[in-house]
Design a protein around this nucleic acid. Structure first.
Lengths: 333, 333
DNA sequence: AAATTGATTGCAAACGTTTGTTATGCGTGT
DNA sequence: ACACGCATAACAAACGTTTGCAATCAATTT
């Protein structure tokens, strides 16, 4: 029983026209039930699989959604940052529930053309972008002419592209208030605040400090480079150990590094120093001690993104969604 | 300046034949440099992007590799298991370095047809499977007729498909020896040993116990269900607390749960109980205390998989690779 | 001057589908 | 007997590329 590789061969086998075979396999009522079943049987027996490439070219729909994470700030960023992985996992799950396939692109935006290239290729029915990075303008420009695009990131009043994300400023404030409520007075922010999301979180922290009449928080850069982040965090800790009793981290990953570095130095969290994260990745619940953090509701966020994207693909309108972050109190503050 | 969507339009604009445009854009020396540059300029100005679907249909190559994780054992498995996330991340990185795109499929193998469907679609130049799960036979059958397929998993002497993975039995033995060397005498294995990899690890642990003249380790099932795993682990701990002083976990994730559950019960690791993981995910270095574990060398494993796959795509032969696991001594034993 | 070359370009056939339109054959009502 | 409608199935034109082959033309060689 030989494998048959295309409609024409199968048609020859059945003694009919390729068009008829196509309809038969699509269960079209236009072809007589008897022949329809005969053809379907033949297809099964000969292990025929329609060539999706051809089908998609013809129908001009791909059934594929692109997930792209632009790595503007960090050359060799942690794609293994638990936040990225978690959201990619959630998105992939939500998309495959809707019958879409997922194409993964990790882009280092060298030219301002990267997004056009991805979209113009005709490979994708829609695109999800994770994080605006420093590519806000490019995204904005492209979004003006391309509807099925939803991005995870900040929402600003006059932006045109559809985004889903939390209010980072408020998240930062919540983190600050949490630390302050625990009696911490000498705060620091750990994270690279040249990334817009982290900058907002830092500013929120500053607001909280100011409202409580505390000194402005220290700003400690920690880059997401694939190696070295642990060392960088540790160096900061060594340097400011005496001046700080509460650390708001830019992400859960950074927070985990902080906790580890502190433990190495025999500082007990949260007795000696409080640490609070940001994101609430599933892992934050599994570390020891469990991480107190600001939740981004990653799963519902992902689901929202997919829903909005589907709306847009269907031609419906879809507005940005800004979610409210909330405190998840565990054991590090 | 209107967007031009296909070769024919661009050709009309340039006053030449579509074929010539195609060659011009491919930098073929067959077309005069002057016209070539003129056409390329035109393409740039009008924002022309070749339709990849059509190109791929014509050339019969897609430039896309599928990464599929079959979820045979666990209905709603943790795709957010750090091991999966890490290896997916590494594979995606290695593939995009080689210029491939990545298509992600999370499959719940209901019928034995799932792999044929993925492969027969003509969408992929090759397939990477992560974990044999309970689909060994299906993989074996398909691999007989489909070359560009590499799977992460166990290697058995008479298997036909190309696999990359560690010797899980030996890994289990190493874990056991490590616990025993630390003076632990009452061992337990935590993990669902109906999965073949974990079963091997368990058997290795048993061998080590036997060689040291210890009682056979307790076998504690822990399922990778998306929720409940923490609770399951905690329940086990409550139940066997008195009978166990050394736990070999089936994965780092499980180990982290163990450590957390023990800490909740005021048991200090490793003073009261030793815990050793398996995988050596990057996170294992960032927990508190840092996780002692058996390393699978995920990054080099991923790189090896990609290299083997490329060999096979190029028509070269490629044999399975079995890597040696090794102990990474940190702070939990 | 005719023939040979070489550089460019045009032409058309693929790749494997889907789908609107047209053709065939058959039964029915007039 | 003839038009008509209806159920099937065949035909052919797309979808947007790539690429072997043929054609054109100018320059060179015999």
């Amino acid at each position: 029983m030989k494998r048959v590789r295309n409609l024409t061969q199968l048609a020859a086998l059945a003694g009919v026209n390729p068009g008829t075979v196509s309809r038969a396999l699509a269960d079209s009522p236009l072809v007589k039930r008897e022949t329809r079943e005969r053809i379907q049987g033949l297809a099964r027996d000969h292990g025929y699989r329609p060539n999706l490439m051809a089908r998609r070219l013809r129908v001009q729909e791909t059934g594929v959604i692109g997930i792209v994470v632009p790595l503007g700030h960090e050359e060799r960023q942690y794609l293994s940052d638990p936040f990225f992985m978690t959201i990619v996992g959630c998105l992939a799950g939500a998309l495959s529930e809707k019958g879409y396939d997922v194409m993964l692109s990790r882009v280092i935006p060298d030219d301002e053309d990267w997004l056009d290239r991805i979209i113009g290729s005709g490979m994708l029915d829609g695109v999800l972008i994770i994080g605006q990075s420093n590519q806000f303008d490019t995204i904005e420009r492209v979004a003006a002419g391309y509807r099925p695009l939803v991005v995870w990131g900040a929402h600003t009043p006059l932006q045109r592209h559809c985004s889903v994300g939390v209010d980072n400023r408020m998240g930062g404030r919540l983190a600050g208030e949490c630390l302050i409520a625990a009696g911490r007075k000498r705060l620091a922010f750990m994270g690279d605040s040249s990334a817009p999301e982290l900058r907002e979180r830092f500013l929120g922290l500053c607001e909280a400090a100011q409202a409580a009449g505390l000194a402005a928080p220290l700003e400690l850069g920690a880059h997401l480079a694939i190696d070295g982040m642990a060392d960088e965090v540790a160096a900061h800790i060594d340097r400011v150990r005496e001046q700080v009793d509460g650390i708001a981290a830019g992400s859960d990953l950074i927070a985990m590094h902080c906790v580890a570095a502190l433990a190495d130095r025999r500082l007990v969290v949260p007795r000696d120093v409080s640490v609070i994260g940001f994101d609430d990745v599933p892992l934050a619940e599994q570390t020891v001690p469990r991480l107190t953090t600001i939740s981004q509701s990653i799963t519902t966020g992902a689901r929202t993104m997919v829903n909005l994207l589907c709306d847009r693909i269907a031609g419906r309108e879809a507005q940005s969604v800004e979610m409210q972050p909330f405190l998840v109190r565990r054991d590090t503050v």
